[in-house]
Every structure is written in structure tokens, then in C-alpha cells.
Design a protein around this nucleic acid. Structure first.
Length: 372
DNA sequence: GCTAATTGTCATTGC
DNA sequence: TTGCAATGACAATTA
């Protein structure tokens, strides 16, 4: 890690500002003094010094390495002295949103290729969502977010590097996902777009960063040495120990907690919506099943009604047939309006006068009522 | 340009 | 009390 970091940093060896800033942010009393740090950065012919430096570093404690990791990250990803100075000089800033670089004494030195300063990073101080996205979108091209791509892929010289940094800082325009080269240069941006525009390779920078989420850009811009995925998905214990073990500024800790909270909530919201959708789908299934069941029951009911009416019809026919055959003692046909067939419990059938039949029926119903 | 769907975020609540 | 998941509400973005 260290060797590769130092090797990557070799392209940065012509940036006196960077070295100066790193020197100023070295931990007081740390074995890695400003001088040592300066020596850490390889020059073009420092293959031999690399190994020496690694030997030197082998005895350092973890915190020092963490500190250096942040710095090496900065080197690796296009070091911005302004931001690193803020990381170490503004421990009280809230959630990394005090990124207004105009407060940094280094901003003037950085922007000496033009009169533009990082102070034009508008909206960076607040903590509303709007100002947040504004500031980080601005940072996207200005700091770590685009650094490695510039270094590794764009191969620009230092002057264009700084111009690019300045341009991106000036040029956040609140048109999300729009590449700077797709924008029409406005009058107030005339200067920035006229400066060395032929050397600017914004698509190279933005193409790499535009796929990053806001939190990823935040983490990158604050040099947080963990991925958003790691921050969100690591267990609580590991997360807490990570916060305590690593040398992190309050800003970084605050942003890390924000990232974790939002990441967790994002997942929770996704799960919640998935569950809600499942519930809706299940309810729709239930509705469909109940509809099918209802249809089935209605068919069954129709079938039953049909068979009942059929049986009634047969019973009437039978009744009529029986009475047609019945004869009284004088051999006369029995009037079905005056007599009725009564079925006893033992299965025997009697011909009963209807008036008696009705009075018995009344008695029976009265008995039933009393019993109830 | 309008609209519906999707997604991220915040605030709140309950465990 | 604190942390966290669940969820409603809202806004921004996307299709």
C-alpha cells in the first residue's frame, strides 16, 4: 500500500504547495517530521529513497499510518492542499460542510494561475440538503473526486492541473449530471472557460466521477479512508471501533455517521417499499383468490337452487300422482285441497285432513317456541 | 412540458 | 437513554 502510494505520488513531485501543506499538517512531535514527510515524496530519481523511506516507516504506530494514509490518499487522488489543511485545521466543522475554501489561507496560493479563488465555493457552509449537494457537486471536480483520474488518465501538467481545479471550483452550475463541456459558457464564466480551454479534459474527470453518489463524493472529498459500502454495511461494533481507532477529524466522523445513517435508511426505505409492494401483491392475490372462490360459490349456489327446484317439481308431481290414485271409502277421488299427506317418523304415510294437519302444525310450532 | 414512477432523505415512532 | 429499523411524507430525478 505504502510503496504503491508513494509510487503514485511520484507524479506530484513538482507541487511545492502540496509539500508545504503536508509539512504544515504533520503531527507535532511525530517521528514523521515535516522534513521526513518532505523526504517521503519521491523525486523523479528516488528509487533508492523509496526503500529507505519504507524502512523508516516500518516502526511507526498505527495512528501515524492512518494519518499518512489520509495524506497518501490525498497524493494518490490528486492532492488538494486546501482540503487537507481544512481536514486538520477545522476539527469543529459540521459534517464536512464547512468546506468553504475561502477561509483557507492557502487558497490564494493555489489559484495563482488565475485570480479565481476557492472562496467561490458557494453554499458550502450550510447543512441543508441543497447546500450540501451544491457544495459537493462543486467539490466533485475540484478535489479528491477527480484527482486520481486526472493523474492516472489525463496526464496533465501542473499548470493545467491547477487550472482545472480552479475551473471546476468556479464552475459548479447546479445542472446535475451535466458535463462542463456541455455547458454554454456564460458571461460571468467567460474567464474560466477561456483559460487554457484546449488543455481541459473535463470529460475525463467527470466521466469517472459522475457515477459516484453524493456520499461517495463526500467521502472522497474528505479523504475518508473507507468506502461508502464499508461504512454502511459494517457491523456496529466494527463501525464504532473504526471511529475510535482511526485518526479522524470531527468533520470526518460526522460525515461518516451521516453516510452510515443515510445508507442504512436508504436500505431500510428500499426494504420498506419492497415489503409494501409484497403486501399489496399479496392482497391482490387474496382478492383474486376470493373472487375465484366467490364465483365458485355462486355456481354452487345456482346448482343447488336448480336441484332444489327440480326436487320440488318432482315432489309436486309425485304428490299429484298420489292424490290422483287415492280414493276415499266411497271410491271417490280425494281432494288435495282438503287433505294432505303426512309422513310419520316411522316412515308410514297418512292422509290427514288439512284442518287437522294445520292445527297440529300450530301446536308443533308453539311447542318449538316454548322450547326455545 | 406534463405526468407517473422511482429514489433518496428526513422526521417520527416504536422496539 | 441510545441505537436502530420501519414508515410516512416530501422533494428531486427519471422515464
Amino acid at each position: 500500500m505504502f510503496a504503491s502510494t508513494l509510487a503514485d505520488g511520484s507524479s506530484e513531485d513538482q507541487r511545492p504547495e502540496n509539500l508545504l501543506q503536508l509539512n504544515t499538517s504533520a503531527i507535532p512531535g511525530d517521528p514523521l517530521s515535516a522534513t521526513n514527510l518532505t523526504n517521503l515524496f519521491p523525486t523523479t530519481d528516488n528509487n533508492s529513497t523509496n526503500s529507505t523511506n519504507q524502512d523508516l516507516l516500518s516502526g511507526l504506530d498505527e495512528n501515524v499510518f492512518d494519518e499518512i494514509n489520509l495524506m497518501s490518499l490525498a497524493l494518490e487522488e490528486g492532492f488538494d492542499p486546501l482540503e487537507v489543511s481544512q481536514l486538520f485545521e477545522e476539527p469543529d466543522s459540521d459534517s464536512g460542510l464547512s468546506l468553504n475554501s475561502s477561509h483557507s489561507p492557502t487558497s490564494a496560493s493555489i489559484s495563482d494561475t488565475s485570480s479565481i479563488t476557492f472562496g467561490e465555493e458557494e453554499g458550502a457552509a450550510g447543512y441543508s440538503s441543497d447546500s450540501e449537494s451544491t457544495s459537493y457537486d462543486g467539490l466533485e471536480g475540484a478535489v479528491g473526486g477527480s484527482g486520481p483520474e486526472i493523474n492516472k488518465f489525463c496526464q496533465m501538467d501542473d499548470s493545467s492541473y491547477y487550472s482545472e481545479m480552479s475551473l471546476h471550483n468556479v464552475h459548479h452550475n447546479h445542472t446535475y449530471n451535466q458535463l462542463p463541456n456541455q455547458m454554454e459558457p456564460s458571461p460571468e464564466h467567460h474567464y474560466s472557460w477561456s483559460v487554457k480551454s484546449s488543455k481541459i479534459r473535463s470529460p475525463c474527470v467527470n466521466a469517472m466521477d459522475k457515477n459516484l453518489s453524493r456520499d461517495e463524493r463526500r467521502a472522497k472529498s474528505l479523504r475518508i479512508p473507507f468506502s461508502v459500502d464499508e461504512i454502511v454495511s459494517m457491523p456496529v461494533e466494527m463501525f464504532n471501533s473504526m471511529l475510535t481507532k482511526h485518526y479522524l477529524t470531527e468533520t470526518q466522523v460526522s460525515v461518516i455517521r451521516d453516510i452510515r445513517r443515510r445508507g442504512k435508511n436508504k436500505v431500510a426505505a428500499q426494504n420498506c417499499r419492497k415489503r409494501k409492494l409484497d403486501v399489496i401483491l399479496n392482497l391482490e392475490d387474496d382478492v383474486n383468490q376470493l373472487k375465484v372462490q366467490k364465483e365458485k360459490l355462486l355456481k354452487e349456489q345456482a346448482q343447488c337452487s336448480k336441484s332444489v327446484s327440480h326436487m320440488k317439481q318432482k315432489l309436486n308431481d309425485l304428490y299429484r300422482d298420489v292424490f290422483n290414485r287415492l280414493r276415499d271409502e266411497q271410491g271417490r277421488p280425494v281432494n288435495p285441497n282438503q287433505y294432505a299427506l303426512h309422513c310419520n317418523s316411522d316412515g308410514s304415510i297418512m292422509v290427514v285432513p288439512r284442518r287437522l294437519f294445520k292445527s297440529e302444525q300450530k301446536k308443533d310450532t308453539q311447542k318449538d317456541k316454548k322450547q326455545k
